[in-house]
C-alpha cells in the first residue's frame, strides 16, 4: 500500500523538508579543510533541534548520529567521526528530520575547496540526474520512469548508478513503500498518483556500480574505491510537476 498524503500531512512534510534544506545550507557554510565530520554532525543536530524538529536518522535502525557523512569513495551511510576534511575531498551529507511524526530526507555532495575535474563532473551529472528523475515524478507516469531517466542520463556520461541502495517512499516513516531504484526499464511499477511522497536519490559512482559495506556495518563504499556522489530530494507527486519538499 502506497499512502497518498493529504494536504494537512503535506504541510508537515513541507516543514520537515524545509528544515532539511536549511540544515544542508548551514553545513555547506561550515565545510572547509580541517573540519571533522563529528563537528558537522553536532552542528546539524543543534540546528535541527533549534528549528523545532528531530534529527530522524539518530537511532534509525541503530544509526549512531544525526547525519550521514560519506567522503570520496564512500557512497552513503558514513558515520561522523574524528576524520578531518581535506582540500580536494568531496563529501556527501544526508540529512533526515521529523516534524509532528512526518519525515523529510535530503542529501547533497559538496566539494571541499578545489576538486579535480572528474569529481566536479561527477557532482554535476549526479545533481542533474536527480532533477531528470524528479521531472518524471508526475501523476500518470509509472514509478520506474523515474529510475530509467536517472540511469540513462548517468550512463550517457560514463558513470554508473548504485544498485544495492535505492530511494524510497517517505511520510509517517522514513522508509515507506515503494522502493525507488535508480536503474531499470521504464513503464514498470505502480502508477504514480497525486500526493505520493518519494525520496529520490541517485547514488552515482565514477567507476563500477558495485559497492560493499565496511565492517562498521554502515559505511557503503565503492568496490573499486573510486569516487561516489549522492543527491536527494523528498518530493510530492503532482499532476503536472513534482513539488520538491526539501527546499528552504
Amino acid at each position: 500500500m502506497i499512502h497518498r498524503k493529504s494536504e494537512r500531512e503535506l504541510q508537515y512534510m513541507r516543514e520537515a523538508g524545509r528544515i532539511v534544506a536549511l540544515t544542508l545550507q548551514e553545513l555547506e557554510k561550515a565545510i572547509r579543510p580541517g573540519v571533522t565530520t563529528k563537528e558537522l554532525d553536532s552542528l546539524a543536530e543543534e540546528f535541527i533541534r533549534r528549528q523545532g524538529a528531530r534529527p530522524a536518522f539518530k537511532g534509525l535502525y541503530g544509526f549512531p548520529a544525526s547525519i550521514c557523512t560519506s567522503i570520496n569513495e564512500e557512497v552513503v551511510h558514513g558515520i561522523p567521526g574524528p576524520r578531518r576534511l581535506r582540500e580536494g575531498d568531496i563529501i556527501s551529507i544526508d540529512v533526515g528530520t521529523e516534524v509532528e511524526g512526518y519525515h523529510g530526507d535530503g542529501a547533497w555532495t559538496f566539494p571541499v575547496g578545489e576538486i579535480s575535474e572528474e569529481a566536479a563532473r561527477l557532482l554535476e551529472v549526479t545533481r542533474e540526474a536527480l532533477y531528470r528523475g524528479i521531472e518524471k515524478a508526475v501523476a500518470g507516469n509509472r514509478l520506474t520512469d523515474i529510475s530509467y531517466a536517472i540511469q540513462t542520463y548517468v550512463e550517457s556520461h560514463g558513470f554508473s548508478v548504485v544498485r544495492d541502495f535505492v530511494g524510497h517512499g517517505i511520510g509517517r516513516r522514513m522508509h515507506e513503500e515503494p522502493q525507488v531504484p535508480n536503474f531499470g526499464p521504464p513503464g514498470r511499477g505502480p502508477r504514480l498518483e497525486e500526493g505520493m511522497t518519494l525520496a529520490i536519490e541517485p547514488m552515482v559512482n565514477a567507476g563500477t556500480y558495485e559497492v560493499e559495506v565496511l565492517p562498521d556495518n554502515w559505511t557503503v563504499v565503492t568496490k573499486d574505491r573510486r569516487l561516489s556522489a549522492h543527491f536527494e530530494h523528498t518530493i510530492a507527486v503532482r499532476k503536472t510537476r513534482a513539488e520538491i519538499l526539501t527546499r528552504p
Binding site: V76, F165, H168, H175, Q179, P181
Partner: peptide
Amino acid sequence: MAASDNCGI
C-alpha cells in the same frame, strides 16, 4: 537515508 534494496537474490 538510502534504503537497502531488499529484493535482491
